[in-house]
Design a protein around this nucleic acid. Structure first.
Lengths: 229, 229
DNA sequence: GCCTTAGTGTCGTCTACTCGACAATCTTTG
DNA sequence: CAAAGATTGTCGAGTAGACGACACTAAGGC
């Protein structure tokens, strides 16, 4: 698996940023940014999921978007120095390329192609967000749970996701007991298997049936806006 | 009232786009864009509110963000040709300046200041969206109702908003009967007065107390990212 | 004046989810 | 091995909001 933005770069562009890219392994749970943090590093995940979470005053943290191999974390900072708007946390163990925001900005100034990529990505991410706005207002926890699993599955190379129900409850902004009930229902339907802290995806097609349309809408937005589906 | 983005332009920039700006009055309910429409015109509201609505397969349309004098509709198209991701509909009678996306793009290419403005605005709009994601998952209809009214009130020059409960129910993604109940509660608390198709804002401070934190968070994001609070 | 229609009020049923509490089970550590 | 901690299962009461049905009322057209 590779990062689709990096893959789309022409040779010229790669020469610009390649030397400044470093491979890194990010462990699950690692905190990359909190709201207000200056974005000094941009991450291009190859395999794994990074969650953008909105923090509330009462300490609640709910996921507002995800970043995987289709995108990058902190890409807005390629254009100009930026502070993070949300918490960015590593959801599953992630291999990524990282680059300093400054170096990326320098390359961005020189490459029209890179500018276009950054722009398309930001647009797709915005599309992701507004679909989630609607989804969270209208759809059941089960549908959103399935959407979340599918989105995650698309961005990792295994059928196994390590996460606790407690954590997933935070992601979805619901009670843990609700997650427990939904997880059991999905297990009975043969979609997943739940072990302590681990979800195994058994049958994607069941998940796709139970997920809301938002899964497809968001995926299609990325396909349309980003190169080489 | 003036559009804050246009106000922030230096003389040089105004010379670039000024000749191509046209004043326009947009009547309530007017449909400006649907998903997939090419964005050929950019609107800078002076007084009034434009809603971005996400459409669902079943016909539901829920608001994902609002545009007023602090921003512009279709501004992503200043960078490169774009299709609308959502429906854009005129919420309250709106005076606006409009410009063709092409002309704006030409100016954008020449003005670093304009580029920066576009960029900041898109960032703030993204912040608006991700806060709404969280809000819709976590907060009560009453709190969201109040947030909506306050956001709207900030963007118009009167204390009167013309809208039906039916329409507001769509905005918030809830049943009309729920809106009726909440509206009555707010009226009893002295925050608003509800006449047939019209909301009068009586006491902002009550609304502010009942609204969720998201109102302030979103407003502050715009203040921080856009010039001259 | 009347009729039509859009907008609102109200009521009852139903469901999904909240919220708190506690037991059961697995995992790690000393 | 025992103890401590983390994770999950379960139960029950409570509530916000969905949903459908219908009556009522203001406003505009004729």
């Amino acid at each position: 698996m590779q990062n689709r933005l990096l893959d789309a770069l022409a040779e010229d562009d790669l020469r610009l940023i390649g030397p400044h890219l470093a491979q890194i392994d990010l462990e699950r749970g690692r905190l990359l940014y909190d709201p207000g943090d200056p974005i000094d590093t941009v991450y291009f995940p190859h395999d794994g999921v990074i969650s953008l979470m909105t923090l509330m005053e009462n300490g609640a943290a709910i996921e507002s978007a995800t970043i995987g191999c289709e995108g990058a974390l902190g890409l807005m900072a390629a254009v100009a120095p930026r502070q993070s708007l949300s918490r960015a946390i590593v959801q599953t163990p992630t291999r990524a390329s990282r680059i300093s925001a400054e170096r990326l900005h320098e390359a961005w100034e020189k490459s029209a192609h890179l500018k276009h990529l950054v722009d398309s990505h930001n647009e797709a991410l915005f599309g992701h967000a507004i679909q989630s706005v609607a989804c969270n207002a209208l759809h059941s926890v089960e549908a959103r749970f399935c959407r979340w699993l599918l989105t995650c599955h698309d961005r990792i190379s295994t059928d196994t996701v390590a996460l606790t129900q407690e954590f997933l409850a935070d992601m979805l902004g619901v009670q843990r007991t609700t997650v427990t009930a939904v997880a059991r229902a999905l297990q009975e339907k043969g979609a997943i298997r739940y072990r302590r802290g681990v979800v195994d995806i058994i049958d994607r097609s069941v998940l796709e049936q139970l997920a809301c349309e938002c899964y497809g809408v968001i995926r299609d937005t990325y396909e349309r806006l980003l190169p080489e589906g």
